[in-house]
Structure formats: C-alpha cells, structure tokens
Amino acid sequence: MRATILFFYRDRYTDTALGQGKTETGMRIRSWSGLHVLDYLETETGKMPTLLCGPIEIPIT
C-alpha cells in the first residue's frame, strides 16, 4: 500500500514530527516520526501508545 503524508508540526519537547495524508485507496492516515516519538505519544494519551489492528489495540514498544 502507498500513501502520501504531509508533515506539518514538530513538537519542541520530543522533536516529534506529525503528519497526515491519504493512502492510494483514499483512506485517511496520521503519522508520527522522530527519535522520541514514544515519549510524545505517551504524553498525549497518558498511556502506552497502541496501533489499531481491526478491533484490537497492539502496544508500540
């Protein structure tokens, strides 16, 4: 699957870049990138970050 993502924000504390875009099928996606991305995601949600795989949440470690 291919996607186009535009990164539009960088968190100063964790140096995490945030982006959003669409896949080639038109599905909307969000993306995070950076050396301290897990710190950013844990701070934003207050819990261990997860990826949604169908109805199941898979922890990112």
Rank of each mutant, 00 (worst) to 15 (best):
H36T: 06
E42A: 13
I5W: 06
E42C: 08
I60Q: 03
M27Y: 12
M1V: 12
Y13L: 15
G46R: 04
L6R: 15
T43Q: 12
T50N: 00
L38W: 03
L52K: 12
Y40M: 06
D15G: 09
R10N: 07
E44I: 12
G21Q: 02
T4F: 10
C53Y: 06
T61S: 13
T61I: 13
T16E: 04
I56N: 06
D39V: 08
C53M: 10
E42Q: 13
Y13E: 15
Y13F: 13
T16Q: 04
Y9E: 09
M1F: 10
R30W: 06
E44L: 14
M48E: 11
R30H: 12
M27E: 15
S31G: 10
L35G: 12
T23N: 01
D11M: 03
W32D: 00
I58A: 01
T25S: 15
Y9H: 14
A3V: 03
M1Y: 07
R28V: 15
G26W: 06
I60M: 10
L41S: 01
L51P: 01
G21L: 03
H36E: 11
Q20G: 11
K22E: 14
T4M: 07
S33Q: 14
Y40A: 08
D11Y: 03
R2V: 07
M27C: 12
F8C: 07
I29G: 03
L38E: 06
D11L: 05
S31Y: 01
I58L: 09
Y13P: 06
M1N: 09
M27T: 15
I60E: 02
D15E: 14
I58M: 06
M48D: 08
T45H: 08
M1K: 10
G34H: 05
R30L: 10
P55T: 06
E44V: 13
L52F: 00
G26V: 04
G19Y: 03
G19T: 02
I58Y: 05
I56V: 11
E57T: 05
F7P: 04
I58P: 00
A17V: 10
L38D: 00
T25R: 15
M27G: 09
T25L: 14
H36F: 09
E44P: 00
T23H: 03
G21P: 05
A17N: 11
V37A: 08
